[in-house]
Every structure is written in C-alpha cells, then in structure tokens.
Design a protein around this nucleic acid. Structure first.
Length: 705
DNA sequence: CCAGACCCTG
DNA sequence: CAGGGTCTGG
C-alpha cells in the first residue's frame, strides 16, 4: 500500500523503455551462415541484423533490469529470432518479387541487387523493431489493452507495410537520382576542381574565398581524406561531427543547439544547394518508413510513452537527416574525387562478383594517387623533403595490395571516410581537443562534462565522442581490425556495439571487390546502423553509466531523500536518461541497504551491550541509541555517504538515523525480528521522513568541490 | 503480470 | 556497488 514501492510513482514505464531488450548471449547466427556465400554478398545483412540485437550492447546497464524484465528480454529474443529466421527464408522469397522489379527498374546499374538487398535490410530492421518495441509498450500498459492491442498492431503493421513499400519506391527514386547526379556532377565539376587544385597548391583554402562555403567544406573532406596530417589534425573529426551529430534531432534537446551552433551553421550553409532534392528524398523516404511508427502513433496519453514517442520522433528525424547527409557527403566525395581520366561512376562500375575487383582497386588507387601526389607535391614543396614512406603507401594502394592492418584503403572511398570517422572516434588520442587517454577521460569528471553545459543533455552525441564515452569501442578496435572480414563480420561472442560496427565497416573497406556503389550503399547502411545503435543503446553515449560524480551527488542526496522518486532524480540530475534511471534507483537501493545494515548492526550491538551490562536496557538506551556527530555510527555513515567530508551532514539526517536506530533496537529488543518481515515497518517509517533536496543540488556539477 | 523492493552474493 | 533471485503490492 504505502510500501516504498509507492514512492517511485512514475518510474516504472520509463526505466527500461530504451534498455536492451535482448540477451547478448543468444544472438542468432548470422543469417548468411551456411548459405552459399556469393562473393559479393554484402555483409550488410548480417551486419544490420547483428546491429539489431541490442543485447550486443554492454549489459552493465541492462543488467539493472529486474528478473521480469530479463524474462521479457528472453521472450523478445525468441520472437525476434523467429523473425530473423523468417526474414532469411520467407522474407527473402517475398523480397524477390520486389527485387525483380527493382532490377528491371534499374537494369543498367549492375548493383541493383545490392540496392534491393540493402533496402530489404532496412525494411527488416524496421520490421524487427516493430515486432519488438510494441511489446515494451504492451508491458508498460499492464496488459490493459493487450488483446485489442494485438489486432491494432496487426493493423498497424499492415499499414506500415504499405508505407514501407512506398518507402522502397522512394528509395529507388532516390537511387536513380544519385546515379544521375554522379554522372552530371562529375562532368559539371571537372573545371571547378582543377581550379581548386590550383588554389590548394598556391597555398591553401584561403584561396577559396571566392568559392561558396559549400565548396570549402568539400575541400575539408578531401583534405582530410588525402592528407594524413590533416587526418591527424581535426578536419575529419569535424566531418564526423557534422555528419552525424548536427541534425534536426537537436531540436528534441534544444539545449544542444547552442553548443553546436557553429558547426551547424557551417553545415547548413554548405549543404543542400544542388543536392537539396536528394536530401529531401532521403528525408522523405525515412519519414515514410518511420522506424517505430507504431510507437508514436500509439498511446499518446501515457507520459512514459510520450517520452518514447518524442525520442522515436526525434530519431526518425535524425535518421532521415543523417542518411541524407551521408548521401549528400558521399555523393559529393565521389563527384569531386573523380579523376578526369576516369569514367563516370555509373559507367565504370563493374558488376558484383566480377573479377574486376582488383582491377577496380587499381583504378581507384590510381584515381586517388593523382590527387594524393598533387597534394604531396604541394606539401613537399613546402617542407622541402621527400616522404619515402608515403611513396610506399601509395605503391601499395595503387597496386591493389590488401592494406593489411592499415588504415582503410582508398579502394572504397566512402567507406574509407566512414572508417576514418569511426577510427577517429575510436582512437581518441588523436583528437586534439579531448584528453589524451581514455583513462584520463574517465577519471575526469564526465558529470561536469555534461552538466557544465546546460546544452549538453546527452541526446545525440557527436560521433567521435562515442569512442570516448564507451571504452568498449576502443577496446575492440584493434583486435577487430585484425579479424577483418570474418564471416560474422567481426562479431565476438555475440557482443555488438559501436565498436563492432566500426569493425565491420573497416572490414568492408578492406575488401577489394567492393565497388563504389557498394561502398556507397554500405556507407549509408553504416550510418543507419549507427543511428539504430544509438536508439537501442543510448547508454553507449552515456559513458557506460554514471560517473563518480553522479555517485557522489547521489550519496549526498541520500542525506535528504532515502526514497527519491525517479522524477526527483531527473530533477536533480539534468544529464539523466532512461538508462541511467535504473542504475540510479539501484544506487539508492544500495544506499538504503547500507544504511539499514548499519542501523541494525548498531541496534543489535546496543541490545547486546544492554543485556550484558545489567539487563536494564533503558539505562544504556539513551547513551547508545543516538547518532551524534561524535559517534561511531555517524562516522561510518559520513564516511560512506560523504567520503570527502566536505559536505555538512544535515541535522535532519542524524535525526532520522536515530529514529531508524531506535526502531531497530526496539524491534530487536522486543523480538519482533523473528518475523521475516520485521524490517518493513521500519522502512515504512523512514520512507515517510524524506525531506526535500536543497535546490543547490539542481545546479550542474558536483554540489561541492 | 509487472515493477520495484528486498535479500544475498561476489 | 553490481547482479541475480525472490517476494509483494497493485
């Protein structure tokens, strides 16, 4: 009735709304396993399916889920597993018709099959999300509309299928547009490019003042791609930032807007001029195929779901714009980097499985070599020395030799871009504006990092930050590269996180058979996957949980509130999201546990002492049953909740501690502790004694030093 | 049935 | 402090 449970009035539906819903140990085998593996079968299918196994995410937070939730996870897993199996068999059959039509639609593009597959994968992603997510919503509603909900979902699913078909068509249209743009822009920009190269040689990007800002941005990209020093510098990181983080998603968390204003302004200007249409298409496509449509058209009345809808809506927008940006970027990369001697992409592309992989590798190598040498000439003229190492690299690349354990090759430029973006996000030490090592970073104060900027609500972080926020990203980066393109796309032990995503991307870029279109699609796919990852595992960017500063603050809050509601927690932790809510609640559970254990211990000790002394407990009671600042009990509590002893323990907490101590003492003395539930009464008393947390705790940062 | 508290263990 | 199991009120 008024058990402590009641104090968490609003927490239940929100805690796990975005928590992993699947177990990491039960990842289905890659659907492609055991099948005749076409040489050109993109790992996209297994990739995206693995990505969709949220269990691959670290379980640290997910582990906070209680038993029932875990059971729910298992159930979801079973259903998703079934879905995956269907997806590989029946799903593909069904997809064949569409694929046929798609092939017919784009006969001249020999990679249309890939396109179809890719879009199928996206559809599967959506389908799987639809299958799994509404279950959470169902649970949240306590089964009230369970029966009706199923029919509703079926309807929704059908509705969605139609929309997905429509989305598919739009995607095709988009692809058409892209191909056209390839050819057209290639021709249109040849002259412009020559001019730019000259400018670069003459001394840099300042010369671009007569160019549109858009062109400057393109300059950044190519510089970053071709110049190792630039890569080490920061251009690529800027690109990574702008590529995925600056987006309409930010309107969801308006606080972020200010911080990103700079980059955004730059981006918005540079974007969407001649490619506006493409982007519109991309956005439209994603809008139509909204990933979790059922969620934001469902129970609006629930507060918890409302947040989910907002999030989903925001993600939808983010996905749309991110994909559009990737397309935009990749497209521009292609068109700009295309050498005059090389035919337009649409023409030069070789069919999948064709032995032209190596050939294409050479071609691409030469393609980039020209630009690279140009760039190097410029640099060497400045530095006045030759760089033999670079020559060697160039030779390797142009010979098509597999760039064993090196930076992603230039064979697949977009993927190389992606990989480098990821790489940069993984190798944090290369980021100039961030601490030199992960350890340092983690030892620093992420709480302050976040809350020092009111704008920095962890909504959708810059991609490069992912590597910082989730150590697992970096941890697996190297090993994964070694593994390269294993059949499972570099999966290890069913684990799946952003790091694995990178590995897969890296693996792709090592495959010489991959054509540019393939890489283009994979780039988009990778982007989508990143977004999906972030949707499913927001804790990936919440620094694998809460920081020591969060802990410190929570402990101090415990002086005031032993049973804070999740609303209270949200109020006092601005950088709070659903994933850390459960952890924070667990913390307070642990705090209470420690508190009551101490109370019981000292109460029992007092009882013992009273009994051994003279059998007259009343005499010693006043002396023993107090928690003055001079007592051992106080010292222990202070040590636990206020280790640094900088904070003045509120008097009220001492009073409450005394109440608790005496209640325990009384219960033990009267033998009520034989009742297995004897503590509940005490809990009830204590939970009514919460006082409001001072406003100082609302301020960002640690409340004290 | 489920979320959350409690309990125990590492 | 985290994780897993159990219990319980709603």
């Amino acid at each position: 009735m008024d058990s402590p449970t009641d104090l968490f009035e609003d927490s239940s539906p929100q805690i796990h709304a975005f928590a992993p819903s699947l177990s990491s140990t039960d990842l289905p085998a890659p659907p492609s396993a055991g099948r005749p593996s076409p040489a050109f079968r993109p790992p996209g299918f297994p990739l995206i399916h693995h990505l969709l196994q949220p269990g691959g995410a670290p379980r640290r937070i997910g582990g906070q889920l209680n038993t029932n939730l875990r059971q729910q996870e298992d159930r979801n897993l079973e259903e998703v597993r079934g879905e995956v199996e269907q997806g590989t068999d029946g799903g593909e059959e069904g997809g064949m018709e569409r694929e046929d039509s798609l092939m017919g639609f784009k006969k001249r593009h020999s990679d249309a099959a890939l396109a179809a597959e890719w879009s199928q994968d996206v559809l599967k992603v959506k389908r799987m999300k639809l299958e799994s997510r509404p279950k959470g919503g169902e649970a949240e509603e306590g089964g009230r509309r369970r029966e009706g909900g199923r029919e509703g979902r079926r309807r929704e699913r059908e509705e969605l299928k139609e929309q997905l078909d429509e989305a598919r068509e739009r995607l095709q249209a988009l692809q058409e547009k892209v191909w056209r743009a390839f050819g057209e822009k290639h021709m249109a920009e040849e002259e412009e490019k020559k001019g730019r190269c000259k400018n670069r040689e003459d001394g840099g990007e300042d010369a671009g003042l007569m160019e549109e800002e858009e062109e400057e941005e393109e300059e950044d990209i190519t510089e970053g791609m071709y110049d190792e020093e630039d890569i080490e510098g920061g251009d690529m990181e800027k690109e990574a930032f702008s590529l995925l983080s600056v987006s309409p998603f930010d309107s969801f968390h308006k606080q972020r807007e200010e911080r990103q204003k700079d980059g955004e302004g730059r981006m918005e200007k540079g974007r969407g001029l001649h490619l506006e249409g493409v982007m519109e298409e991309a956005g439209l496509w994603l809008d139509c195929g909204g990933l979790v449509r059922g969620d934001w058209h469902g129970g609006v009345e629930e507060e918890g779901e409302e947040g989910g809808q907002k999030f989903a809506q925001a993600l939808k927008v983010e996905l749309g714009s991110a994909v559009a940006r990737v397309i935009d970027r990749v497209l521009r990369l292609y068109t700009e980097m295309t050498d005059p001697s090389s035919p337009p992409a649409a023409i030069s592309f070789l069919p999948p499985g064709n032995d032209g992989g190596r050939e294409r590798g050479v071609w691409m190598g030469l393609l980039t070599q020209g630009r690279r040498e140009e760039k190097m000439r410029g640099n060497e003229e400045k530095t006045g020395r030759q760089d033999g190492e670079r020559e060697k690299q160039l030779q390797n690349r142009s010979s098509g030799a597999p760039p064993h354990r090196s930076e992603p090759s230039d064979l697949s430029m977009p993927l190389a871009v992606q990989s480098k973006l990821f790489s940069r996000s993984l190798h944090h030490h290369q980021l100039p504006h961030l601490p030199p090592s992960r350890k340092d970073y983690l030892n620093s104060d992420p709480f302050l990092e976040f809350s020092a900027h009111p704008s920095s609500h962890p909504s959708f972080p810059p991609l490069p930050l992912l590597g910082h926020l989730d150590p697992s990203l970096a941890r697996h980066a190297h090993g994964g590269r070694e593994r390269g393109m294993r059949g499972d796309g570099g999966m290890r032990g069913g684990g799946m996180d952003g790091g694995e995503l990178y590995l897969t991307a890296g693996g792709i870029s090592f495959c010489p058979q991959w054509g540019r279109e393939m890489c283009f699609f994979m780039s988009v796919l990778v982007c989508v996957c990143v977004c999906v990852c972030l949707l499913n595992w927001p804790h990936v960017y919440t620094q694998e949980g809460l920081s020591p500063c969060h802990l410190k603050k929570a402990k101090l809050m415990f002086f005031y509130a032993r049973y804070p509601s999740s609303n209270t927690l949200k109020t006092y932790f601005p950088d709070f999201n659903r994933c850390v809510t459960s952890q924070m609640i667990k913390w307070f559970s642990n705090f209470r546990e420690f508190f009551y254990i101490q109370m019981e211990r000292f109460a029992r000790q007092a009882v013992r002492e009273a009994l051994t002394r003279d059998g007259a407990p009343r005499v010693s009671r006043e002396g023993q049953l107090r928690v003055g600042r001079d007592t051992e009990l106080y010292r222990i509590l202070n040590m636990h909740y206020n280790k640094s002893n900088v904070y003045q323990v509120p008097e009220r907490f001492i009073e409450i501690s005394e109440v608790a101590l005496r209640e325990f003492y009384s219960a033990i003395w009267t033998g009520r502790d034989s009742d297995p539930c004897w503590k509940k009464g005490i809990y009830k008393i204590i939970c009514k004694m919460d006082s409001p947390v001072p406003d100082a705790f609302r301020l960002p940062g640690c409340p004290i030093g």
